[in-house]
């Protein structure tokens, strides 16, 4: 581990600044973010390589200019669109992380139904619903009629597949980019069954 660390530090020499990374969860389960945290103690190495901007990990709420934006989850509501556009505008490289961002994933299963059917099932006809009405507080973002993978809403540069992508996949991706290498995954990291 020590040898590995010094390797990365070596590779990182000559970089004036650290890589600035932001992350955002859109319509997903937060599992991809949890998987990122599964790099465990390597997070100490990671913060040597990168600086986190807006991300739930730092709880920074606004985004500045970033090198990399990691997006978990698909686009299901107006708020997701705002966040995603903000990331696209501020990140040089935007990455779709995990099945929901790449394909829409589990939330996109609602695309089989009309939005009206979904909302009525949840808020009007569902078992045990009291005071049935579709919530209309302005604080609650409106749902889009369908859930979209993020590349249907903005341009996307990279796709990290997996549900979630493993901690090692994140690690490989971020260390490769930080080192200025072309990202390349061994088969074991993008092989699922």
């Amino acid at each position: 581990m020590v040898a590995q660390m010094s390797n990365i530090q070596q590779r990182n020499q000559g970089r004036k600044d650290k890589l600035i990374v932001a992350t955002a969860p859109l319509c997903g389960c937060f599992g991809c973010h949890m998987s990122l945290l599964d790099i465990d103690e390597r997070i100490f190495e990671l913060v040597e390589l990168v600086e986190f901007d807006r991300t739930p990990v730092t709880d920074i709420k606004t985004i500045g200019k970033c090198d990399i934006g990691l997006i978990e989850g698909g686009v299901a509501n107006a708020h997701n669109v705002h966040d995603l556009r903000e990331f696209r505008a501020n990140c040089d490289t935007l990455v779709a992380v995990g099945s929901c961002a790449v394909t829409g994933g589990i939330p996109a299963m609602r695309n089989q139904f009309d939005l009206k059917e979904c909302l009525e099932e949840a808020y009007i006809h569902g078992i045990g619903v009291e005071n049935p009405h579709v919530p209309n507080d302005v604080e609650i973002p409106l749902l889009l009629d369908k859930v979209h993978p993020i590349h249907e809403v903005v341009r996307v540069d990279y796709f990290l597949p997996g549900c979630p992508p493993s901690a090692d996949t994140f690690w490989q991706f971020l260390t490769d980019v930080a080192a200025g290498n072309e990202v390349s995954f061994p088969y074991s990291l993008i092989h699922y069954d």
């Binding site: 696209r88 009309d114 939005l115 919530p135 209309n136 409106l142 009629d145 249907e152 903005v154 341009r155």
Partner: peptide, 20 residues
């Protein structure tokens, strides 16, 4: 880049259901 669909229109059903 531009999406293949009209995002504002995609909110129409929600607008109708919530009256917003």
């Amino acid at each position: 880049y531009e999406p293949a669909f009209n995002l504002d229109k995609a909110l129409e059903v929600s607008r109708q259901l919530t009256g917003r």
